[in-house]
Amino acid sequence: MNSYNYDEFSTGDYDFDTEVGPSVGDKAPDFELTTATGETKNLLDFSGEFLVLEMGSITCPLFQSRRGIMQPLAQTDGASSAVLYVREAHPGADIQSHKSFDDKMGCAVRLTCEDGETRTVFVDGLEGKAHAAYGSMPNAVFIINKGGCVAYRADWNNPTATRKALQALLAGRAVTSKPYFRPALPTTVFRTLGNAGKGSAADFLKGLPFLFWTNIIKRNLRLLFNRPKSGSKHTTC
């Protein structure tokens, strides 16, 4: 099986210290992908001034906990919003790692039909090429302007910071919000991992001390003392 679609979550599956993928001012990678509704579309073929693109999967507690704030962004004047469906963050006995594209499509359809996701859901290929191009983090977010340039990015989506960044970009202001890492509510964590089935929660809890140190402490301290890059609708790449 492709190692990209791991059967058991491990902190070694991700690079938590290095920014990988397009930064602010870089060209956003474009891909022709299938959506959860069966359409074939280009990722960067959007109608608004900006596209808010979030990485996610149904076994990612962070993604599941952000959807209530992220989905309404699609109704913001001048903004489009979409999800790139990636590998399962915490596979278990009931929602396993993807062995085929049909497996992945099935999970994306479940996200829309059972979980009620209303944004356009692009389904990445089994090999995760689009996900890799955007850095491979499980719940990263990018805001991309009509020129196809990244105007904002966060390795971990903080939906409040993302919303403020979008509002600033639409108003022509510099982005000042910092995407501090915010953990998901425990109720969302255990509901999501419980739905994934046996093994999912155990693997997550095993890595929890490392995740706490790396993201809540180290990452947030770096953000506190560093100024984020700021893009705009006029950013060129």
Rank of each mutant, 00 (worst) to 15 (best):
N2A: 11
N5G: 06
D7S: 15
D7M: 09
E8A: 13
T11K: 09
G12M: 09
G12S: 15
Y14T: 04
D15M: 10
D15A: 12
F16Y: 15
F16I: 04
D17Y: 13
T18P: 06
T18I: 14
V20E: 08
S23D: 14
S23N: 10
G25A: 08
P29G: 09
P29C: 07
D30I: 07
L33Y: 02
T34Y: 03
T35N: 06
A36Y: 05
T37S: 12
T37W: 00
G38M: 13
L43R: 05
L43W: 08
L43S: 04
G48I: 09
L51Q: 05
L51N: 02
L53N: 07
E54G: 04
M55Y: 00
M55R: 02
M55F: 09
G56R: 03
G56W: 03
C60P: 01
P61G: 03
P61D: 05
P61T: 06
L62W: 04
L62G: 03
F63D: 04
F63Q: 02
R66T: 11
R66D: 11
R67K: 15
R67F: 04
Q71T: 11
L73H: 01
Q75A: 15
T76C: 08
S80W: 01
S81P: 00
S81K: 14
A82K: 07
A82V: 08
V83W: 13
Y85N: 06
V86P: 00
I95V: 14
S97L: 03
H98P: 00
K99M: 07
S100K: 10
F101D: 07
D103S: 07
C107V: 00
V109A: 11
T112G: 06
C113I: 08
E114K: 13
E114F: 07
T118Y: 03
R119Q: 11
V121Q: 08
V121M: 09
F122T: 07
V123M: 05
V123K: 02
V123E: 04
L126Q: 05
E127W: 06
A130G: 08
Y134P: 06
G135L: 11
M137Q: 13
N139R: 03
N139L: 06
V141K: 04
I143S: 02
I144E: 02
C149Y: 10
Y152L: 12
R153W: 09
R153C: 07
A154E: 10
D155S: 15
W156M: 12
N157S: 14
N158E: 09
P159D: 06
T160E: 12
T162I: 09
R163H: 07
R163F: 02
R163P: 00
K164S: 08
A165V: 06
A165E: 01
Q167G: 12
Q167W: 00
Q167H: 10
A168C: 04
A168D: 14
G172D: 05
R173T: 07
A174F: 01
A174Y: 00
T176M: 03
S177Y: 12
S177L: 09
P179S: 03
Y180N: 10
A184M: 07
P186W: 12
R191Q: 15
T192C: 08
G197L: 05
K198W: 04
K198A: 13
G199K: 08
A201F: 02
A201S: 10
A201P: 01
A202R: 13
A202W: 09
F212G: 02
W213D: 05
I216L: 14
I216A: 14
L221W: 12
L223C: 01
L224R: 12
N226E: 14
P228F: 12
K229H: 11
S230T: 15
S230K: 09
G231I: 08
K233W: 00
K233R: 14
